[in-house]
Design a protein around this nucleic acid. Structure first.
Length: 225
DNA sequence: AATCCCCCCAACCGCCTTTAA
DNA sequence: GTTAAAGGCGGTTGGGGGGAT
């Protein structure tokens, strides 16, 4: 079976978008809203496939997208979320509403991956004497030992959390953060699961994320002394 | 000044999931 | 319940820009 790629159709344009195409797409979405991408090429006359239109909108044209350098805070969030969720860029992006999953993925692949590698090799040469590796790496620099031990437990947690429905209830702050309706991966739900020790770790991470969002490093308060 | 090399990122590809008929 | 189409996501690529030689 299988289905032919939508962009294989004859006459479909590929490659970089022109400003004219951008204008057409943006003005169409301003009038009709995003969604029903199938009808976009037909209704706009754009020689692009629906997928390409959606991607252009979500990754580039959508309002509220922050471009340019990542802040240290964003960087830390990405590192910790990647340790928690793995390469689930869309889920990670839901915690950084101003960034697209593509941006985060690119940033990870071009900057952070390298950084992590370097710091892991540094730590490997130092870590043989350290006993409390699990949270040491969370303090300022992320270490390999942190990411492997912490990630593995966190990934188990995320597996436990699979199938969670996004919480319909959202407080004001979260609602603001979710202005593009990317989705809430379960902040509130996380906090309500306190029994399981692994889930307690999860809550700690969530607390950290919330603290990070308000500019207060959680782990430096909790673990550095 | 010319060429090479590397990095970055926008966009594409292919697979999986969801939805609708 | 089945199937086809659309939507969504993560991995990958390729072209452009900029620094190094």
């Amino acid at each position: 079976m299988g289905r032919p790629p939508c962009c294989d159709k004859v006459g479909i344009k590929k490659g970089p978008w022109t400003p004219e195409e951008d204008i057409i797409l943006v003005s169409y979405i301003q009038e009709n809203g995003p969604g029903n991408w199938r009808s976009v090429p037909t209704n706009t006359g754009l020689m692009r496939c629906s997928k390409s239109c959606r991607l252009r909108w979500t990754n580039y044209l959508r309002p509220g997208i922050k471009r340019g350098n990542f802040t240290p805070h964003e960087e830390r969030m990405i590192i910790h979320l990647q340790a928690l969720l793995g390469n689930r860029w869309a889920a990670i992006a839901s915690y950084l509403p101003q960034r697209t999953d593509n941006d985060i993925k690119n940033y990870w692949n071009t900057h952070l991956k390298k950084k992590m590698k370097m710091s892991s090799s540094e730590v490997q040469s130092q870590s043989s004497t350290s006993n409390d590796l699990t949270f040491k790496g969370l303090n300022t620099e992320t270490s390999n030992s942190y990411s492997s031990s912490y990630a593995s437990s966190a990934q188990n947690i995320s597996r436990l959390l699979e199938g969670w429905k996004r919480s319909p209830a959202m407080n004001n702050t979260q609602a603001m953060q979710q202005e593009q309706s990317i989705g809430n991966e379960g902040f509130e739900s996380l906090i309500s699961f306190e029994k399981d020790s692994e889930l307690q770790s999860m809550s700690m991470l969530e607390t950290w994320l919330l603290d990070e969002a308000s500019g207060q490093p959680f782990f430096s308060n909790s673990f550095s002394s």
